[in-house]
Amino acid sequence: MPESWNLLHDLGTGLRDRANILAVACIDVPTWRSWTTWVTSVGFRGGAELLFNGVKKHHVTLPSQSEPWDMKQLLVWIQRNLLKERPELFVQGDSVRPGILVLINDADWELMGELDYQLQDQDNVVFISTLHGG
């Protein structure tokens, strides 16, 4: 999804340059593809990035595994590898905390099967917290 990737990228750099704190954290992609390495970008916005050290862009690769990655696994992986503090503010049970919106390729994850959604190559996942500010 190069289009959404660009959007995310634009937002990330564009807004940051204007001293906007709506940060986008991206898990960057390796340039080659294989069936078992899933290339996904992950963004955190609306305050959710504060739990990730405020880092706006991560460069990571999802490890290989025999079956496709689903959202449930991605959440666990994020928790283990990206989340810096207070996991209770990001996850609850095996899903995200109520009040954090999840967009997969810019579409509400409620339309995509939520936790059961199987990640595709080059997918783009964004987490937006609705819990801050007004």
């Binding site: 937002l11 906007n20 709506l22 609306g46 500010g133």
Partner: peptide, 21 residues
């Protein structure tokens, strides 16, 4: 709904500030 407000701002690429006091 807050959810729709946030998504509206996101899709419209509105410029907003979100840090806790």
């Amino acid at each position: 709904y807050e959810k729709e407000i946030v998504l509206y701002a996101y899709f419209k690429k509105l410029d907003y500030f979100s840090t806790e006091c």
